[in-house]
């Protein structure tokens, strides 16, 4: 064994060896090793032989931190869509040390008949660009690298567009994560008109964006029924549990949720009057599906009364709600709340 200097307080010895092999070299070597084995490798074989682990492996010694490293690496690799399998030993089932790991090449390779034309490549470039901010930016960046591995260059159309979807709601990340893992989530939800948020335990089925707002379609465990939640009404953190969802999500859950939201939007109409020559007149008149009546009033479709009330309150005196009555009340309540939270007779608190 090589002589290791007495551990110096400034340079821990593990950091010295860790810097010798870069993380991506270790991960790359692990993928190569696991693809090329038919019967799989045991953890001991991997740690003792694969580049990046073997340098830190102590034969017969304590390798627990290296083992934890391997566990994290497995997760990181699986997250990239690499099908890393775990095989039980037929002669020694249940023994963790006898588990074998491999990557089946057939499941790793993109099917041979999948290719993309230059036009399709351009579209996919633009589709990835949509997510350049927020929770899915890493995924879209990596999807583009895989797309480029096919060697097709994009064509030059659609160059003047920079489309973007925002995932501003903090709940988006944990909810899509739970969706992938098919586990229950817990969060506090503030229904409009209620004073206090209530805790919900739900099985996520889909996360959908409808007209600029994110919704969660899920099966509520307490209500024992499907429910739709607006992400912006989730208060505080979303807890991703380890409990598998008892209800399996249908493959069309997202499209179904979107169709339902569209139907609500189509059948709900509010009437407002706008002051001529204002921002409200130009913008509300140009909303999707809005109808300008000759008397100056505008008919607006909406999905959620409280969301529309927020939008209309923003226009202040430029718009007055005529119907429905619930919307009149909602807007008036909002205006009262704004007046109350903006006193003019006291210094800033």
């Amino acid at each position: 064994m090589k002589s290791v200097p007495e551990s110096s307080p400034s340079i821990p010895s593990s950091d010295v060896s860790a810097s010798a092999v870069a993380v991506e070299e270790r991960l790359f070597s692990l993928v190569l090793a696991l693809v090329s084995t038919e019967i799989g490798l045991t953890k001991a074989e991997i740690l003792g032989a694969v580049q990046g682990y073997r340098q830190k492996f102590v034969p017969g010694g304590d390798n627990s931190s290296l083992e934890r490293q391997f566990e994290r690496d497995k997760d990181d690799i699986r997250e990239l869509g690499v099908p890393l399998e775990t095989l039980e030993s037929p002669t020694d089932p249940g023994n963790n040390q006898a588990l074998r790991y491999r990557i089946s090449k057939g499941d790793y390779d993109l099917p041979a008949d999948i290719s993309f034309t230059p036009e399709e490549t351009t579209l996919l470039n633009l589709a990835a660009m949509v997510w350049r901010e927020g929770s899915l930016s890493g995924e879209s960046r990596r999807a583009l690298l895989k797309l480029r591995s096919l060697g097709t260059e994009g064509s030059q159309q659609l160059i003047g567009y920079a489309p973007r979807i925002r995932t501003r709601d903090a709940a988006f990340g944990p909810l899509t994560d739970a969706l992938d893992k098919a586990v229950l989530v817990r969060f506090s939800y503030l229904k409009p008109g209620e004073l206090n948020a209530r805790e919900r335990l739900v099985a996520p089925a889909a996360v959908v964006q409808h007209q600029g707002r994110w919704y969660l379609q899920a099966f509520d465990q307490k209500a024992d029924a499907p429910r739709t939640f607006l992400l912006s009404r989730i208060v505080g953190p979303v807890v991703v549990t380890r409990t598998p969802s008892p209800q399996s999500a249908s493959a069309t859950a997202g499209d179904d949720a979107l169709a339902e939201l569209d139907e609500i939007w189509r059948t709900h109409v509010a009437h407002v009057s706008v002051r001529p020559g204002t921002d409200a007149e130009s913008r509300l008149g140009k909303r999707r599906g809005s109808i300008r009546n000759p008397d100056g009033t505008i008919a607006l479709h909406y999905t959620d009364l409280a969301v529309l009330a927020d939008d209309l309150a923003a226009f202040g005196p430029e718009v007055v709600v005529i119907s429905p009555a619930g919307l009149v009340t909602a807007v008036r309540d909002r205006l009262a709340a704004i007046i109350a939270s903006h006193p003019d007779d006291m210094d800033a608190v």
Partner: peptide, 18 residues
């Protein structure tokens, strides 16, 4: 060991599809 493009992960594919 490898000579082909890797598959997309579920999240990568869903980001592009969305």
């Amino acid at each position: 060991a490898i000579d082909d493009s890797p598959r997309f992960s579920a999240r990568e594919a869903s980001a592009l599809i969305a």
